[in-house]
Simulated scan of single mutants.
Amino acid sequence: MDNLGIHVSWLWLVAGVLLCAAEAVVPGMFLLWIGIAALATGLVLAVFAFSLPWTLVLFGILTIVSLLLGRKFYGSRDVEGDRPFLNRRADALVGRTFILTEAIRQGEGRINVDDSPWRVRGPDMPAGTKIKVTAVEDAMVLLVEQA
Rank of each mutant, 00 (worst) to 15 (best):
residue 80 E to A: 13
residue 83 R to T: 13
residue 112 N to V: 12
residue 64 I to L: 15
residue 117 P to A: 09
residue 36 I to L: 15
residue 100 L to S: 04
residue 52 L to R: 01
residue 21 A to F: 10
residue 35 G to Y: 11
residue 56 L to Y: 05
residue 127 A to S: 10
residue 107 G to A: 04
residue 5 G to T: 08
residue 40 A to S: 15
residue 66 S to E: 07
residue 94 V to L: 03
residue 16 G to V: 08
residue 12 W to E: 10
residue 16 G to Y: 06
residue 96 R to I: 00
residue 73 F to Q: 07
residue 6 I to R: 06
residue 28 G to V: 07
residue 57 V to P: 13
residue 131 I to Y: 02
residue 129 T to L: 01
residue 110 R to K: 15
residue 33 W to A: 07
residue 72 K to R: 14
residue 59 F to E: 05
residue 55 T to V: 08
residue 88 R to H: 13
residue 35 G to N: 08
residue 147 A to M: 06
residue 90 A to G: 03
residue 89 R to C: 11
residue 116 S to V: 15
residue 91 D to Y: 07
residue 37 A to H: 05
residue 135 A to R: 10
residue 109 G to N: 12
residue 46 A to Y: 06
residue 50 F to E: 03
residue 50 F to N: 03
residue 43 L to C: 14
residue 101 T to V: 11
residue 95 G to I: 03
residue 100 L to F: 03
residue 110 R to Q: 14
residue 19 L to V: 02
residue 81 G to V: 07
residue 129 T to K: 01
residue 88 R to C: 01
residue 79 V to G: 05
residue 104 I to C: 04
residue 107 G to I: 03
residue 14 V to P: 02
residue 123 P to N: 13
residue 19 L to N: 00
residue 120 V to Y: 02
residue 45 L to Y: 04
residue 16 G to D: 06
residue 113 V to I: 14
residue 59 F to C: 07
residue 10 W to C: 01
residue 26 V to E: 00
residue 103 A to M: 03
residue 39 L to F: 09
residue 83 R to H: 15
residue 116 S to M: 15
residue 68 L to A: 15
residue 32 L to R: 07
residue 35 G to T: 06
residue 32 L to V: 13
residue 32 L to F: 15
residue 81 G to Q: 13
residue 79 V to Q: 10
residue 112 N to F: 09
residue 43 L to Q: 01
residue 130 K to S: 05
residue 15 A to T: 14
residue 118 W to K: 02
residue 19 L to C: 04
residue 135 A to I: 03
residue 36 I to N: 05
residue 76 S to C: 06
residue 29 M to Q: 04
residue 8 V to C: 00
residue 34 I to C: 12
